[in-house]
């Protein structure tokens, strides 16, 4: 009970023999909603392996965020993770699935294909160029496919959006706070610089340095010396 009261948004007054909590209904409901997202089992391509299977398994463990109850029916789910490209034939079906979900409903688009069509943007006769042309998307998680950690960050962003942007006074209406998907204190320029540095570092091949630690390298050097001295 103590754990619940400590995490409750609002004021907790302790009295002998019990406690009184004063809070806003919005905040408690949003707290409950954000921590019990039920995702829909909906994977259309390779992102599903990463988003719904790897994250759900014990190593990464989606259950830490209270979103592990994957449902096979949209009527029991409130989070749709679009994991993979949506083709023209699938698009009306996906729209139908979205409309069958009960409010409040949330959508996370993961991976390049779901965000923009990805590699199938050009010269493709069938892939939809971005799922936000069909249904509203709350959070985008870029990557091809994203790491499970990236998906978790997307999930945490969605939880933050739910906690800050919803009120029961206007059901169905969501004030979407625009928030950066980047962690605090990290700028886009910084990431670009790091990626550039990593690319440069990876492209410089220093054979002597790389082979110095390898046990086979000594044998190769000996072999070369032996064979060239003849």
């Amino acid at each position: 009970m103590g754990l619940v009261l400590e995490n409750l948004p609002g004021l907790v007054e302790r009295f002998p023999g019990g406690s009184v909590a004063i809070t806003r209904l919005d905040e408690t409901i949003n707290l409950a909603r954000s921590n019990s997202l039920w995702p829909l089992m909906f994977g259309t391509k390779c992102c599903a392996i990463e988003m719904l299977m790897a994250t759900g398994a014990s190593h990464h463990d989606l259950a830490r965020f209270g979103a592990e109850v994957a449902r096979a029916s949209v009527r029991q789910a409130d989070l749709m993770v679009i994991a993979g490209a949506i083709v023209k034939k699938m698009a009306p079906r996906m729209r139908l699935l979205y409309e069958q979900m009960a409010e409040p409903r949330y959508v996370i688009a993961t991976g390049s294909c779901a965000i923009s069509g990805g590699p199938f943007m050009y010269n493709s006769y069938t892939v939809v160029r971005g799922t936000d042309e069909i249904i509203p998307v709350d959070v985008y998680v870029p990557g091809c496919p994203p790491r499970p950690e990236a998906f978790f960050w997307g999930l945490l962003t969605l939880q933050r959006m739910i906690r800050e942007g919803e009120t029961i006074r206007e059901p169905g209406v969501r004030r979407k706070p625009v928030m950066s998907a980047l962690p605090d204190g990290v700028s886009l320029q910084e990431i670009r610089r790091e990626i550039l540095a990593a690319l440069v570092e990876e492209n410089v091949v220093d054979v002597a340095k790389a082979s110095a630690t390898k046990p086979w390298a000594r044998k190769v050097r000996e072999w070369i010396q032996k064979n060239t001295s003849r």
Binding site: K88, Y122, N123, S124, Y125, R129
Partner: peptide, 15 residues
């Protein structure tokens, strides 16, 4: 669509 000369109003040409 898998013929090399297939054209479609939906398709985008690679710039």
């Amino acid at each position: 669509p898998l013929r090399k000369d297939y054209q479609d109003s939906y398709m985008l040409e690679l710039p």
